[in-house]
Computed example of a mutant assay.
Amino acid sequence: MLRVLAIDDEAPALSELAYLLREDSRVEHVATASDGATALRDMAEMVGRGERLDGIFLDIRMPGLGGLDLGRLIGGFPDPPRLVFVTAHDGWAVEAFNLEAVDYLLKPVRSARLAEAVRRLAAAVGKSVDPDPGEVIPVELGGHTKFVALPDVLFAEAQGDYVRLHTAADNYLVRASLATLEREWADSGFIRVHRSTLVSSRHVKELYLEAGRILLKVGDHTVPVSRRHSRQVREQLIRQAGLGGSPLRRRGHRP
C-alpha cells in the first residue's frame, strides 16, 4: 500500500486530488500541504519519525517555492519519494521528467488518469498492490463472449464499420467507431496517431524516424504516425508516457 503527500496552493484542487487519491484502494495514507515550504517541513518531520513516504503529487506553479524547485530539493533527501506532477500547464513536461518524475498529469485531473499515475507510482517504488482492472470490452467469438481488459489493448485499427483491437496475444473485431473509442478511452492514455489508428501510450516502446516517416514500436508491432498527427503524438507521449528528453531518432543512428 502507498503512502503519499499531495501539494497544491489552491484549496479546491488540493481537496479534490486528496479525495481521489483516498478513493484508490492502492493508497493507504494521504497527507496534504498547501505550499512547498510546509511540505518540506512536514517531510522532514516524517523522516524524523521514521515514517515512510512513497510518492508526492505536486503542483508546479505555487507561490514561493514552486513545484520544480521543490522537486529538486526532494531529490536530495535520503531515499527520496517519487514525484508525480499535477498542473494546468503542459510546458514543463520535459523539465519534470528530467527530475525522473513518474508521471505528469494535466488539470482538471480525471479519476481514470489519476489511477494510471498511481499504477506507475506503485511500479516505480516496487509496491505489490492489486492492479485496477479498469474497463473490459466484450468481444463475440463464435457464439461466446470474451472479455478483453482495456489495459491489454496495444492499439486499435478502424476497419469499415468495425474496429480491430490488437493485444499481445491476439486481435479482435468489435462493432464500434474509432471516433467513439477515442473519446471514451482518452483518459486511459489512448492517442490518435493516424485517421484509422489509436495507440495505447503505455505500450509504446519506441518512437523513431525512418525514411522521413515517424513510426512507433508498440509491443511487437510497428505502427505508422501520419504527418498530420506527428507533432501532437510526440508531445502527448512526452506528457503521458514519460519518455522525456527527445525520443525521436533515426534508426541506425545514434539518438
Rank of each mutant, 00 (worst) to 15 (best):
L114N: 02
F155N: 01
D103A: 10
W92P: 10
E140R: 15
T87N: 04
L121I: 11
D132M: 05
F85R: 04
K146F: 14
S128E: 11
N98C: 09
Y172K: 15
K127R: 14
T87E: 09
S128H: 08
V148L: 15
A93K: 02
L114I: 06
S111N: 13
A96W: 03
K127I: 02
L150T: 12
G134H: 15
H144E: 11
L99R: 03
N171A: 14
R110C: 04
E140S: 13
T87W: 05
G142R: 15
A93P: 07
D152F: 00
L150E: 10
A93G: 08
P131E: 04
H89V: 13
P133H: 14
R113Y: 11
R119M: 02
V153Q: 12
F147R: 15
T167D: 06
N98K: 06
L106S: 03
F155I: 01
A156V: 14
I137F: 14
S111P: 05
R175C: 04
F155A: 02
P108W: 04
T167V: 10
E100P: 05
K107G: 05
L178P: 02
A93W: 01
V94Q: 09
V129F: 09
V102R: 00
A169C: 08
L141M: 05
T167G: 05
T167S: 13
E95C: 03
E135Q: 14
R119W: 05
I137A: 05
A117H: 08
L154S: 00
A169N: 15
A122P: 00
V153W: 14
R120N: 13
A176F: 13
V153D: 03
V109N: 02
D90M: 01
P131R: 05
